[in-house]
């Protein structure tokens, strides 16, 4: 098994054993989409396109937030307790370590965002009596756009958590998560609804963010990480 797979698999297993993060994530993944989508359904009435677009709108920030939630364990905890130092001595490049961890964070975050989508669809279908069809664009959104954004968020937040001290991380963590959500809201304001154009723009911005995350991670050094261990 490649070192990338070894690292990613471990982070996935740890995420599913992190009871507090799972509970917090599940609460958010259920509460936020249900409240939001029911609000959208109430105002959209019988407009199924608007409801489907609302579901797509909700899953993206949920996925990004889940990435932030699981990053705290994969990157920040290891830095706070110093175990990252031992990992840095392994015969694995820093980039590979970052890639494996970001991927390992992205998998549970993505699954949570799928749970969120299913819950939102179920809520609208039952509570608002408006059955939601498996819209191909919604499936494309969930299958392609959401994972790219989650990877980008996990990569950027993870790189920042490796590079910064604890106090800076507290501030920047919130700044990054709100920055992501603001960007999502702004993009959906520019290209509203669920269309191929919207998905193409969201995917392109997501890929650009992923490239930015990769670039920033490449600038992080072991010295920087070790010197910011508390």
């Amino acid at each position: 098994m490649s070192t990338f797979a070894v690292i990613a698999r471990r982070e996935i297993r740890l995420a599913f054993r992190n009871r507090s993060a799972l509970i917090a994530g599940l609460i958010f993944a259920v509460w936020f989409p249900v409240m939001t989508v029911l609000g959208i359904a109430a105002s959209a009435g019988e407009d199924m396109a608007a409801i489907t677009a609302g579901i797509a709108t909700v899953t993206l920030p949920v996925g990004v937030f889940m990435g932030y939630l699981f990053c705290a364990d994969a990157f920040l905890r290891e830095k706070r307790d110093g175990s990252i130092e031992t990992l840095l001595c392994a015969p694995v490049s820093l980039r590979r370590l970052w890639e494996g961890k970001a991927a390992g964070v992205a998998v549970p975050a993505y699954l949570m965002s799928l749970v969120s989508a299913v819950v939102a669809i179920a809520a609208v279908s039952t509570l608002a009596s408006a059955p939601v069809a498996a819209e191909p664009l919604l499936l494309l959104h969930l299958a392609a756009v959401v994972p790219v954004w989650i990877l980008a968020a996990a990569g950027l937040i993870g790189a920042a958590q490796l590079a910064l001290g604890m106090r800076e991380n507290q501030i920047l963590g919130f700044a990054l998560i709100f920055g992501f959500i603001f960007l999502i809201v702004a993009l959906q304001g520019v290209v509203p609804g669920l269309s191929l154009t919207t998905e193409a723009i969201l995917a392109a911005v997501g890929l650009a963010l992923l490239a930015l995350a990769r670039f920033i991670a490449g600038k992080v050094t072991k010295e920087r990480i070790v010197r910011t261990i508390p």
Partner: peptide, 22 residues
Amino acid sequence: FENNGFSDRMSAADNLAYYAGL
């Protein structure tokens, strides 16, 4: 190091197996 480099949530065998993989 002073920190042993383990995850508290993983078993002893799983922690060692992780490093064995690395």
